[in-house]
Amino acid sequence: MNLTLHVWRQKGPQDKGKLVTYPAPNVDSDMSFLEMLDEINDELIRKGEDPIAFDHDCREGICGMCSQVVNGRPHGHQERTTVCQLHMRQFNDGDEIFVEPWRAKAFPIQKDLIVDRSSMDVIMQAGGYVSCHTGGVPDGNTFPIPKKVADYAMDAAECIGCGACIAACPNSSAMLFTSAKVAQLAALPQGKPEARKRVQAMTKALLDEGFGNCTNHYECEAACPKGISVKFIAKLNREYLKSMIPSSTAEPV
């Protein structure tokens, strides 16, 4: 099939960007979206032009590196799919496709489709862990965890940290991303002792990093390539509220 691409080109963080049009002839429907871009880049290189810069690595939908807004939707229109797993059979001959980077205040553009997502690491560093030391932990079966709870934690833990939820949100909120980690750890016995401190610290970090708040648009869930549910945001809110209530048994926040 023959397609027309409009791709966001921007030389560096300080430069002004613009959409540039490229023809994409003879696209094979079995190609992935990124393989299609590889071919366009190959052509650009042969013509002596600067190829399109984009983040990608595993190309199997798990590393979370790829990050493109395709036709206005993070990772494109196919549900529960990263852009590296989006295949060209999802498009039709003659289609015009717009390709842009994640857009959020906390994600400055580095070049073309590459953005800086280190602010997400900062949120994790604020409390996205259990403070256990290497070694000196009990046997893995010491605390039975009901299957339902383990499954719930796993549903949250599937987040790949790509940032599509933030790119999709009109407020550029990192609430779904943050809530996935808060919920995973708050559900498990291992994560409970620090639950109060964690939810406070991570919420503060996301606001400090310039992410917006949640106003229940649910665009994040629709864009999430792993189908992380907004129910975890509700869980985050509950955990946050709980952490505000003084409790003689819980550790001080």
């Binding site: 862990y129 259990v130 039975p144 291992q190």
Partner: peptide, 19 residues
């Protein structure tokens, strides 16, 4: 396995709650 469980890695569990 013990270390990962302590970190909150959600390994698959059976209905009794064991790994």
């Amino acid at each position: 396995i013990d270390q990962c469980v302590a970190q909150g890695v959600p390994f698959a569990r059976d209905y009794a709650g064991y790994l």
